[in-house]
Structure formats: structure tokens, C-alpha cells
Amino acid sequence: MKVEILERDKDSITFLLKGVPLSLANALRRAVISEVPVFAIEDVYFYENNTSIWDEYIAHRLGLVPLKAEWGTYNRDSEVKFYLDKQGPGVVYSGDLQPETPGVEVVDPEIPIVVLREDQALRLEAVAKVGDAREHAKWQAGIASFRPVVRVEIKDEQLFRELLPDIDPEDVRRQNERPQGVDTAVYNLVDEVLEDHPEVGEIKKKKDVFLFYVESYGNLPVDVLVRAAVSELLQRLEMFMTKVEGNKA
């Protein structure tokens, strides 16, 4: 298996995954989406809430606030308390949540929670626990998608131009030369035309090379998120092999 990084920034990464079957590529996608453990608020204890929003609604909003912590500093039994105490008038933001101990904090401090009038107040204690998105989406650390690397072979350029006037055949040929192949939008349009006009050309897919896109929600840096997903996947494979070997005995 080989990985070739094409683009990377603070929250997203695009890379080629080479030499793997479709099933393994999809397993990695699922691991990124649902198996990486992160913090999220699970329990909320209200001491004062005379706002226009019920306790349950506020608790739900707090649960969806992304929290970040350094990978490796926590485990699935870790918990962190947050406190919030604010008087109106004003807006309660996610940044008003104050952790009891350092190391866990909100990703974006400007997420609005509730508006307070002059005579209103919100005072609560929230407990953040570690979980993964198999239990609830609030523990989802990011999103991932992939597709095979695609190249378009044009057989009838004149007909291609007639049926796809917005796509330049020369641009398609240039995209064919890139490691990631043609853009997804080009692939979708050409694929739709070829269903009725196969004489126009042919779509060629590499069976063991996939274009991956991963975006972090901020709970973890995107490169850490990918490594954590691989680690979780390997742990599950090791558990599976251990059980298989145990049954042999």
C-alpha cells in the first residue's frame, strides 16, 4: 500500500491510496467517520435556566459543540467537566464553557447557544465523555469520501463536443495525465452521456487506486485523524485475528 498526498491544509487532506482493494478503502472511510474516539458533552446539570429555551434543547446544542484534545492524552474512560455561568443581556456562546482542567476545549468559541434577555441567566455543569460516532453523531470527528481514479478516453471527438459542449476535450486529456485523473464533475457528466452514447468514448477506472478526501471537524488535526482511524482499524483486525486463532486452539 502506498499513499501520495496531493493537497493538505489545516482541516482537510486529499491523497491517493494505492495498491488496496475497494473493501479496505471503504473500511478506512468508515473508520474515519465513525470509529475515532473524541470528546463530546454527554451529561448536563442545570442549576439555573430561565431563558426561552428548554433544558433539553440547550443540552442537545451543547452536545453538538465540537471539543478538541491532544490525541494520546485520553482514553475511552476519560471525562472532563465544563462550567457555564452567564447573566443577560447577551448571547451565550460555546466559548463561555470553561473546562475544569486544561487539555480539553471547544473548537470554535463563537457557536451561539442561546440569547439572554436582561433578566435571564444560564448556569450549568456539563460533563464531556469520550465516545465514537457509532453511538451518536456528536462524537464524529470528521468526514471522508473516496472514489476510484478515473480517466476518460475520447473516441469520437466531434460527437463529444456536440453532446458535452461545456467540456473541452483538451482539458479532459490534460486531466487524464494527472495522478488523480479527471475531476469528479467531468466524470459524472461523461458517465451520464456514455450510458446512451457509448461510441463517444470510454471510462477507465483503476481498481486499486483511490482518490481520498478527509475533512476534520476540528476535534483532531486532519493528519492525526487519519492516523487514528488507521490505528483503530488495525486494532480491530488484531482483535479479529486473536479470536480466529483462539478458535483454532
Score class of each variant (00 low, 15 high):
99 P>K: 11
104 V>R: 05
104 V>H: 01
107 V>I: 15
107 V>M: 01
109 P>Y: 04
110 E>F: 12
113 I>Q: 05
115 V>F: 02
117 R>G: 14
119 D>P: 01
120 Q>F: 10
122 L>T: 01
124 L>Q: 01
124 L>K: 03
124 L>H: 06
124 L>E: 00
125 E>R: 14
129 K>G: 13
129 K>I: 01
132 D>L: 07
132 D>G: 09
133 A>N: 07
135 E>R: 05
136 H>S: 09
137 A>F: 04
137 A>N: 00
137 A>Y: 05
138 K>Q: 03
138 K>M: 03
139 W>T: 00
140 Q>A: 07
141 A>T: 12
146 F>V: 10
149 V>R: 06
149 V>A: 14
149 V>Y: 11
150 V>S: 08
152 V>F: 14
153 E>L: 10
154 I>F: 01
154 I>N: 09
155 K>P: 10
159 L>S: 14
159 L>R: 13
161 R>L: 08
162 E>G: 03
164 L>E: 04
165 P>F: 11
168 D>C: 10
172 V>K: 02
174 R>C: 14
176 N>T: 06
177 E>H: 10
178 R>V: 08
178 R>G: 09
179 P>C: 11
179 P>M: 08
180 Q>S: 14
183 D>N: 12
184 T>S: 12
185 A>R: 08
187 Y>I: 13
189 L>I: 02
190 V>E: 01
190 V>A: 02
